[in-house]
């Protein structure tokens, strides 16, 4: 087992203890970190390991949340929670295939701008559709029963479920990065013309990476909808798309741990500095400026560099 995975299981062991010591870390805070951590992991798969900048990730997070939430509100008595989650993930993957398919024809900033424009369409649809609740969003989403058996209503049940889904998602991203496919993604990130000259249709690899990233972002969104029993327009907004960039860069781009650490940092600041109101944005902004000026590799990236040179 690699040292990364050993560390990961240590983290999981600590996370299991959280509900027993709510005076140290609120379980609800931890679940928020896990949701955003998974979201940032999905984003990192694209930016850190494929070299694609997407401003559409809120569209995946939000659309999956809306579909999962709407299904649970209407059909919680008839379908298991897992069906609603899968439907949400499938929706995110499908939207990812459309947005990715259109954007991948262009490179660099044009790619990013196309993802931004298309994600704005998703936002517009979320405002306009009746089933998304428009400005109100979806509220009071029931958590339902997993496979019709396990009731997820209690705080401990949803906490355990969140942790399991996070672990599955994290391991999936880890596997994709360390797979034969992941090697080709790294090659494309390093030198795309060279990868083409070796006979790889790089657009197809980038599209699959995009869809996988969208699907995992969707998983995070579906999970978040169940944990907070709430989906709002904020989940599909540009603000959320930029926040995940921030989390990934703060934590460390292209590192396995970076996105999770970055998500914990941003969510933590938002929570513990909530008394400052709108000032939180300024504090996070300043931290970001310090980070890109002095710790360009992010917290985890700089740590790994120091350990390597020591």
């Amino acid at each position: 087992m690699s040292s990364t995975l050993r560390l990961f299981w240590l983290f999981v062991a600590a996370a299991i203890l959280v509900p027993f010591f709510p005076q140290i870390v609120y379980p609800i805070f931890m679940m928020k970190v896990l949701c955003y951590g998974l979201f940032a992991c999905a984003f990192n798969l694209l930016l850190g390991y494929t070299g694609l900048v997407s401003f559409a990730h809120a569209a995946f997070l939000g659309s999956a949340g809306y579909v999962t939430g709407a299904l649970m509100i209407r059909h919680a008595d008839r379908i298991g929670t897992e069906v609603a989650i899968l439907a949400g993930v499938a929706t995110a993957a499908a939207i990812g295939a459309v947005i990715g398919g259109l954007a991948i024809r262009r490179k660099g900033i044009y790619f990013a701008m196309i993802t931004l424009a298309l994600s704005q369409i998703v936002y517009f649809l979320a405002v306009q559709f009746r089933w998304t609740g428009g400005e109100d969003g979806l509220q009071g989403i029931p958590r339902g029963r997993l496979f019709g058996l396990v009731d997820l209503t209690s705080d401990n049940a949803i906490y355990g479920f969140t942790l399991v889904v996070f672990v599955a998602g994290f391991l999936l991203v880890h596997r994709i990065i360390h797979s034969p496919f992941g090697q080709i993604l790294r090659a494309i990130r390093d030198n795309e013309p060279r990868a083409i000259s070796l006979g790889y249709d790089t657009d197809r690899f980038k599209l699959l990476a995009f869809v996988l990233s969208a699907a995992v972002a969707g998983l995070a969104g579906a999970l978040k909808a169940l944990v907070f029993q709430l989906v709002s327009l904020n989940d599909v907004s540009l603000h959320t798309s930029t926040e995940v960039v921030l989390m990934t860069l703060l934590g460390g781009l292209g590192t396995i741990w970076g996105p999770l650490v970055g998500a914990a940092l941003v969510v933590g600041l938002q929570n513990y500095l909530a008394t400052l109101g709108d000032m939180v944005t300024i504090v996070i902004g300043l931290i970001f400026i310090v980070c890109v000026s002095f710790f360009r590799l992010g917290l985890v990236g700089e740590f790994l560099r120091l350990r390597k040179s020591a």
Binding site: H178, F181, Q183, I184, R186, A187, D190, A195
Partner: peptide
């Protein structure tokens, strides 16, 4: 034109991988 962040061995492996036919296998271990 090399893949800068990869080792020399990994560079050559990227080329060898094509004939192996696993390039799209994202679920498989490296």
């Amino acid at each position: 034109a090399t893949f800068a962040q990869m080792t020399a061995r990994e560079n050559v492996r990227v080329a060898l991988q094509r004939a192996q036919g696993l390039a799209f296998h994202f679920w498989r271990s490296e």
